[in-house]
Simulated assay, not measured.
Amino acid sequence: MPVLFVGHGNPMHAIRENHYTHTWTVEGQRLPEPQAIVVVSAHWLTPGRTHVTDAPRNRVIYDFGGFPEELSRVQYDTVGDHEVARVLAHRLAEYEAALDSQWGLDHGTWSVLKYLAPAPQVPVLQISIDDTLPLPRLHELYGRLRRLRDQGVLFIGSGNIVHALGRARWEPEAPAWDWAEQFDADTAAALTDRRLDQLLDPYGTWREARIAVPTDEHYRPMVAALSLLHPEEEVRFFNASIDMGSIGMRSFVTV
């Protein structure tokens, strides 16, 4: 199965038709049929431990505020799978992965799967992010799941490489900040060349990182997706633009 990283951006994309959502739809139509879909979302942080969803049906989590009521009425009906959850947790066992029946699908997951996989006939699960782990260790952790791709598991990281919400420009068609474009371009080049040392140490590599990634919870799903690639695999970018001036929508899929 391929691996995707999706820049999910503003939750409002879930109820809009625009070039981002159109591209998600097209990319979803290109995907082979998986046996299961597993998402690492920037919006499920579990400090000190990694969790895996384990419920027969996934509840939809509306983890935001101040948005139109319409957004909180979006439905995304999916099932979980205990055996898949158990296998994922077993692969992560050294890090004390926990099965979690309380979480569901947060907006980092359903807002993009709504387009990528509108009516999945296979189980959908999430894996949380232990945001206390250094990035190299996080990369090693998720890399333990790579072989499950050969068994039909589609892995998706959902976050944003550039995510400086406090500097967002809310006016329509707002231009990107120079530092946002520079960091996006630098990380894209590093992804193309697979310069892991740089990508796993963004603050020590690029001076724009501190402003483009003030906190790294949205960057970490990219690291998760990166860890699942085979050494010889290349990636193809899509939605490679900056939204709202400071939210990088750049996404990639293996080719």
Rank of each mutant, 00 (worst) to 15 (best):
M1N: 00
P2E: 04
V3I: 11
V3Q: 07
L4E: 00
H8Y: 09
P11E: 14
R16M: 12
Y20G: 06
T21S: 10
H22G: 12
T23I: 06
W24C: 10
V26D: 14
V26M: 13
E27H: 04
P32T: 14
I37R: 04
V39A: 08
W44S: 10
T46Q: 08
R49D: 07
T50P: 02
T53A: 05
T53G: 03
D54P: 07
P56A: 13
Y62T: 06
D63H: 02
G66Y: 06
F67N: 05
P68H: 05
E69Q: 07
S72D: 04
V74M: 03
Y76P: 03
G80N: 00
E83M: 03
E83K: 10
R86Q: 09
R86V: 06
L88D: 05
L88W: 09
H90D: 13
H90T: 14
A97P: 03
A97E: 08
G104K: 08
D106I: 04
D106P: 00
G108C: 10
T109W: 01
L113G: 12
K114L: 15
L116M: 06
A117Q: 15
P118L: 12
Q121S: 15
V124G: 06
I129F: 10
D130V: 13
D131E: 15
P134F: 04
P136A: 15
L148D: 01
R149P: 00
R149V: 04
L154I: 05
I156G: 02
G157P: 03
I161C: 07
H163T: 14
R167W: 12
A168E: 11
E171K: 15
P172R: 11
A174W: 14
A176I: 09
A176P: 11
W177V: 00
D178W: 12
D184G: 01
R194P: 12
L196C: 07
L196D: 13
W206N: 01
R207M: 03
E208G: 02
A209E: 00
A212D: 03
V223W: 09
A224D: 10
A225P: 01
A225W: 05
L226Y: 09
L226M: 13
L229C: 15
E233C: 11
V235W: 05
F237V: 04
I242C: 07
M249F: 09
M249H: 08
R250S: 07
S251G: 11
V253G: 09
T254F: 08
V255L: 00
